[in-house]
Write a protein that binds this DNA or RNA. Structure first.
Length: 718
DNA sequence: GCAAGGTC
């Protein structure tokens, strides 16, 4: 039975023998007793927790439960950074307690609890029936789902499905080298994408060894504004980009730096720095850190092009105005992350030095001067008809970029220019021209950094919990980190650092290459069989839990509580009814859900985690037993892949079928007209040639026997 | 023990 009305229990219940929270209960009691004692002699109560929904609830709980129902009598201090100026100001202007903020906060707690706990229990129960293949040795397998976990997992699954259903369409590029004064200009035919090979060949035949004229030289200058001061998400993104630190690892290091008083509070969404933190003081203080940080460190100012903190701060302090370039993200409780400038009182670990260095240079850069780039695009026309373009971009004013080194991303910028010597109407000779065959590419898989950014964009979770939610998905084995080049050492856990060489870092090439589609797309986060099965089942029976609508709807409702347009009682009641319905629908379909997820758990047991990405989904329903699904499996002995039924263990369905050993296999959702077995598509590259074909996987399909088709599949499975 | 939120 779902628990729709969780209530507070008296501590005595938790303290009773046999309670697994006994130890904790005694600890809590001690803290409560102490606060209670102090509160008795207090002349008044000032609530000075973070000025946001959650902060309001924390203070409320203390005032109500430890200070004998003093919330309504308390006063509220409102400040958004811990500077003397702001704190004094807030204590001089105390507000009444923010009842509506508290109501919104407690509703959030209640809703997340009744949704999360009830559905996680239902899910767990559905696979823990007798003889379930999903259960562990003790006969138990813990599953979970929640308002944030669900949609986040669904992002990974949706992306995987997009990749699987992608059709590689060929197109062609023509690349040409032109020469003038012994200088080679590398160009591409414009427009870049040519749809047919014959059109591309026509261009080549018409332009080979011909003269071209520089018909246009376009130079554009673009300002590059200084970066914003860091909020947590931006710090996690940048630390992933440069150090390959995962978001949760970055947060854990930032926390250590904060507890050592080296940086300000890191769990912030703000990209703003109030002047009350005293810019000048911080910039000056930071300049004293040079020796402290970079001595004895494997990291630091190794080359001359990287300026020391004191060199940067001298330049900044010489400027007339000292103002950071702020972003628009705000936070009700904290400013952006900045270094305090204090000297470390202990020796720092390498990872801490790296992150602190990044934070310091980011802060200094945000005060820097605007930089600018110049882009030159040269158009070369052959026979007044065929146009080729060459382009180059370079930094012309370095500005803040020199403060941010080595973290500025220079890819896409040239160091030397090779085009600016050209003038309009110059004549150039074509010396080389070639055809490139390309294919349209599916979207990239998420990595931990881009998944976190997706959560930010969709506004699910909070800055403090997003990285943890991703770690939870790893912990539950719902997602894995797929590494292509070292498939045998595939990283399936939530490691701290993603190797720079490994494609799991989702190294993205700008343009697809001829062989690119084989190697490029396979790295990054993939759902496991279980992850996929959970999203599929939830979508079928309780779609709300994996869609962002639930969160979106809840946010709106909570905002309305804050603004007084609805009440906490109404909102929680509505959620309660929704979960009641969801649980009812769940219970009606429990055996189906249990079976779907159990077969996925079975697949995870019998196949390697690094098997081909596309085998994650079913190839179609089993035509023999009807209740199972045909999936790609690997033969234990021969390691060859074949199609097998998910009911192999549970219902002894022995249906198998050989599959091509190379290339990518895709479920195209069709059934063979003759035998009703699934029709799948296989594609890949064979002897440099791309192929894609569809076929019925039944090796004894009457259609094949009659026309002797599908000779390609001859390998027998053991 | 399961959620999501906060904290050291």
């Amino acid at each position: 039975m779902p628990i729709l009305d969780p209530t507070w229990l008296p501590l005595s219940v938790l303290k009773s023998k046999g309670s697994n929270l006994r130890f904790l209960a005694f600890k809590i009691e001690k803290i409560l007793r102490e606060i209670s004692l102090i509160s008795k002699s207090a002349s008044g109560f000032i609530h000075a927790c973070d000025y946001d929904q959650e902060g309001e609830v924390i203070g409320y709980n203390i005032l109500e439960h430890a200070c004998h129902n003093k919330y309504s009598l308390s006063k509220r201090a409102k400040f958004s950074s811990l500077t003397d100026e702001e704190i004094i100001q807030s204590f001089n202007n105390l507000l009444p307690p923010s009842q509506k903020l508290k109501d919104a906060g407690t509703s959030r707690h209640m809703i997340d609890f009744i949704y999360g706990i009830n559905l996680s229990r239902a899910l767990t129960n559905s696979v823990n029936k007798k003889d379930s293949p999903g259960a562990d040795k003790k006969g138990y397998r813990q599953l979970s789902i929640g308002r944030v976990q669900g949609p986040t997992l669904a992002f990974v699954v949706e992306r995987e499905k997009e990749i699987e259903s992608h059709i590689f369409e060929p197109y062609w590029n023509v690349m040409a080298d032109f020469e003038k004064n012994n200088q080679i200009i590398k160009t591409y035919y414009y427009p870049y994408r040519i749809d047919t090979k014959s059109a591309a060949e026509n261009i080549i035949n018409s332009c080979k060894n011909q003269l071209g004229k520089a018909t246009d030289i376009n130079i554009q200058k673009t300002a590059i504004k200084p970066p914003f001061p860091f909020n947590l998400g931006d710090l996690q993104k940048e630390a992933f980009r440069f150090f390959r630190f995962t978001p949760s690892y970055t947060l854990s290091i930032a926390e250590k730096l904060y507890l050592s008083a080296l940086i300000s509070y890191p769990r912030t969404s703000s990209q703003k720095l109030p002047s009350s933190i005293n810019y000048e003081k911080i910039i000056k203080a930071v300049s004293n850190l040079d020796n402290n940080l970079h001595q004895n460190s494997s990291y630091g100012n190794k080359t001359k092009s990287i300026l020391s903190y004191s060199e940067i701060s001298l330049k900044l302090l010489a400027n007339k105005v000292l103002k950071p370039n702020e972003g628009k993200e705000t936070d009700p409780a904290h400013p952006a992350i900045y270094p305090t400038g204090q000297k470390p009182k202990r020796s720092l670990e390498d990872s801490e030095i790296k992150l602190l260095d990044l934070i310091i240079r980011r802060l200094l850069s945000s005060f820097g001067e605007e930089a600018s780039s110049s882009q030159i695009i040269v158009t070369i026309t052959v026979k007044d008809k065929f146009t080729f373009k060459a382009e180059e971009k370079k930094i012309v004013v370095e500005g803040w970029i020199k403060y941010y080194r080595p973290y500025f991303d220079l890819s896409g910028f040239m160091i030397q220019d090779s085009l600016s010597f050209l003038k309009r109407n110059d004549i150039l000779k074509n010396v080389k021209i070639e055809l490139l065959e390309k294919f349209t590419q599916p979207p990239f898989r998420y990595n931990q950094s881009t998944l976190l950014q997706k959560m930010e964009r969709e506004k699910i979770g909070t800055k403090s919990t997003r990285s943890e939610i991703i770690s939870t998905l790893f912990k539950r084995n719902y997602i894995t980190n797929f590494v292509l080049s070292t498939a045998h050492q595939s990283v399936t856990d939530d490691s701290k650092v993603v190797s720079k060489n490994s494609p799991a870092s989702n190294y993205q090439k700008k343009q697809p290459t001829k062989d690119g589609f084989v190697g490029m797309q396979k790295s990054g986060l993939r759902p496991t069989e279980i992850g996929l099965a959970i999203v599929n089942s939830m979508k079928k029976y309780i779609p709300n839990i994996v869609s962002t609508n639930l969160t979106r709807d809840m946010e709106t409702q909570l905002e309305q509580i804050e603004s007084g347009n609805t009440t906490s009682v109404q909102v929680v009641e509505k959620a309660r009814n929704q979960i009641k319905e969801a649980i009812e629908s769940f219970n009606l379909n429990e055996s189906k859900i249990g079976q779907e997820i159990s077969s996925a758990l079975e697949v995870n047991k019998t196949t390697n985690l690094w098997r081909k990405p596309t085998s994650i989904s079913s190839l179609g329903p089993c035509p023999v037993c009807k209740s199972g699904n045909l999936i790609v499996k690997k033969a234990v002995k021969s390691k060859k892949r074949f199609a097998g039924c998910t009911n192999y263990t549970s219902a002894k369905c022995l249906t198998t079928s050989p599959l091509p050993q190379k290339g990518t296999i895709k479920n195209v959702g069709k059934k063979c007209e003759k035998c009703n077995w699934p029709i799948i598509s296989a594609h890949g590259i064979n002897q440099g040639k791309r192929y894609q074909w569809e076929f019925c996987i039944n090796s004894s399909c009457p259609l094949k026997i009659s026309n002797n088709g599908n000779k390609k599949i001859t390998s027998k499975q053991t």
